[in-house]
Design a protein around this nucleic acid. Structure first.
Length: 586
DNA sequence: AAAAAAT
């Protein structure tokens, strides 16, 4: 019976206190019929609701591909299309160790939302222990109802928090309910130019691909066709995929601009815009492309479209972007991934540069053969060198960095995910966003100079309730991160080596300005600046810097916040404390 | 300083 409550929650969101409320009133929620079938779910058995239509030989020059012709009587997007066993298998039986379909037989399916919910269970069960999907992550719990209530959203959250589902589910749900609108005429399959209803922008190719993969799962048996475009891959093939129909487009900015200029994509009917990892995109210099896409083209203006921004931090640049792109938005801050997680044991060891390799071998030998280890290095050259070294030492390993071809990158990731190469040597490209299940051990062979990068890296392990270990090699080259690292370790209640403590103490006294972490000068901001007029925080943690006060430094927004801000509802797995709402009922 | 991303 619990599922019904989940769906009820989708339909009714009380904006004032952020609670679920009431029972579903929307008739659309019941249009799937309330069958409680014993085999699989009623949803998967409901062949009568399969799409009516036919394939027709394409009449285009150089075409010849068959295309789907919609039966005008069946343009109800809230109804599922016919099942496709081959596709179902492709989407849902991938790398996971076996979803227990039988387990869902007893679940009563009573509302339209089950369409999405079936997908939800499929997808979430991939990365999690079987009992994990029983609860939404904090960002899901809060973002989904906000998006469902058609409000713009600025969310401080990171991937790995279940963020992808947090925007895909409600966006798809709304597309299912409302149908394609004008885009039905313009988003036709076979059209040379496609008009997606929803656009998701992501900073890296792999992240775009990953979001696309999730979208395909959630969109299974719907009329929504997801596509992905990113650089480094054959553009011709991507164009052909687009021409088969595109309602939800996931893209990296550069390739999308390219596609727009080639006249392959029109954004006139793009009612949902998602900017994922917005801070990262700005860091990477994507702002001109993003503005080109959002402001200098045909996309509906803010207020007409619904816009959702996700960002790990909330510095000045992101605030400006939020002001420009979002209309009367809801600000949502949930904790950060990684550091506050009690699931990750963080170790810092002093290792001289020359000892790193042999120390690494010791660590690898101490690790179980079939558990995944992710080794971070600082440079692309370093990644190649280390991979080579490990390879010659007889370890099954691979590497990923920006100088490798896109094909190699994806292959490496696949080899790693599948366990064929349980050791992956990576640069920063793999630090953020990538959701790799079962990474047992993250090793910072080279520590990053940026604490946020560190947090992202260790967040690759200990995901969704699993236990993880993060080991970092530290030596005098890493003094710049000493203070921030100490803060993180203390915050996460980790063991702190005494040498690190004294080093941090020395460092702080040597340089009183540089020693101040930018986290506390607002860089890692997760506070809605609109509540603090003038930009100088009314609440200033005792460690907070005031250095960005009126001038608007390059990062941050003045003021600050105390260290335990994040402990409230942070990620890290223990979702059982995430509030009084019981998503699944009893 | 290095990394990422359109060709």
């Amino acid at each position: 019976m619990g599922l019904y409550l989940f769906i009820a929650a989708f339909g009714n969101y009380d904006n004032k206190d952020g609670n679920w409320a009431g029972a579903p009133r929307d008739a659309a929620y019941n249009s799937f019929g309330g069958r409680s079938d014993r085999s699989k779910s009623a949803f998967f058995n409901d062949r009568s609701a399969g799409s009516r239509g036919r394939y027709e030989r394409g009449g285009f020059a150089g075409g010849g591909n068959s295309r789907w012709v919609e039966d005008p009587r069946e343009d109800d997007w809230s109804k599922p299309t016919a099942p496709n066993e081959r596709l179902e298998h492709e989407l849902f039986s991938g790398s996971n160790t076996g979803i227990n379909f039988e387990k869902y037989d007893d679940i009563p399916v009573e509302a339209t939302g089950s369409f999405l919910l079936s997908m939800w269970i499929y997808v979430t069960s991939h990365c999690k222990r079987t009992d994990r999907y029983t609860r939404p992550t904090p960002v899901q719990k809060h973002a989904i109802p906000i998006i469902k209530s058609k409000r713009d959203l600025m969310a401080c959250a990171q991937t790995g928090s279940g963020k992808t589902a947090a925007f895909l589910l409600p966006v798809l749900s709304q597309i299912y309910t409302e149908g394609p609108g004008d885009a039905l005429q313009n988003g036709r399959y076979g059209r040379r130019k496609q008009y997606p209803i929803s656009l998701v922008l992501a900073p890296t190719r792999e992240l775009a691909l990953q979001i696309y993969d999730e979208a395909r799962k959630f969109a299974y048996r719907s009329r929504v066709r997801p596509c992905v475009v990113y650089g480094g891959a054959d553009i011709g093939q991507q164009i052909r995929e687009l021409e088969r129909g595109c309602h939800l487009l996931v893209a990296t900015p550069g390739r999308l601009v390219d596609m727009m200029e080639r006249g392959k994509i029109g954004l006139e009917y793009c009612n949902y815009l998602v900017l994922d990892e917005a801070d990262r995109m700005l860091d990477m210099g994507f702002e001109p492309q993003i503005r080109r896409i959002v402001e200098q083209d045909t996309m509906p203006p803010k207020g007409i479209r619904q816009t959702m921004m996700f960002s790990a931090t909330f510095p000045k640049e992101i605030q400006i972007l939020a002001r420009d792109f979002l209309e009367d938005y809801i600000f949502l801050a949930v904790g950060r991934v990684g550091s506050t997680s009690e699931n990750i044991t963080q170790k810092v060891v002093w290792v001289e540069e020359s000892d790193k390799r042999s120390f690494l071998l010791d660590l690898l030998n101490a690790t179980g053969k079939d558990s995944l280890t992710l080794v971070f290095v600082e440079t692309k050259k370093g990644a190649d060198a280390l991979e080579n070294f490990l390879y010659h030492e007889g370890y099954a390993c691979t590497s990923i960095h920006g100088d490798r071809s896109q094909r190699d990158r994806e292959e490496a990731l696949h080899q790693f995910r599948s366990g064929r190469c349980p050791i992956l040597v990576a640069t920063a490209v793999a630090a953020r966003g990538l959701d790799i299940c079962n990474v047992k051990h993250v090793i910072n062979f080279d520590l990053p100079s940026d604490i946020e990068e560190y947090v992202h890296r260790i967040g690759r392990t200990g995901r969704v309730g699993n236990l993880g270990l993060a080991t970092s090699f530290f030596n005098d080259k890493n003094s710049n991160i000493t203070k921030d690292l100490l803060d993180i370790l203390l915050e996460a209640k980790q063991e702190v080596p005494s040498w690190l403590e004294s080093l941090a103490y020395e460092h702080q006294h040597k340089s009183n300005t540089r020693g101040r972490s930018k986290r506390f000068s607002g860089g890692f901001g997760a506070r809605d600046y609109r509540q603090t007029p003038g930009g100088s925080g009314s609440y200033s943690g005792n460690r907070a810097g005031r250095n960005t006060g009126g001038h608007g430094g390059s990062r941050g927004f003045g003021g600050g916040f105390g260290g335990n801000f994040y402990s409230n509802d942070g990620y890290g797995g223990n979702y059982s404390h995430s509030g009084s709402v019981d998503w699944w009922g009893n």
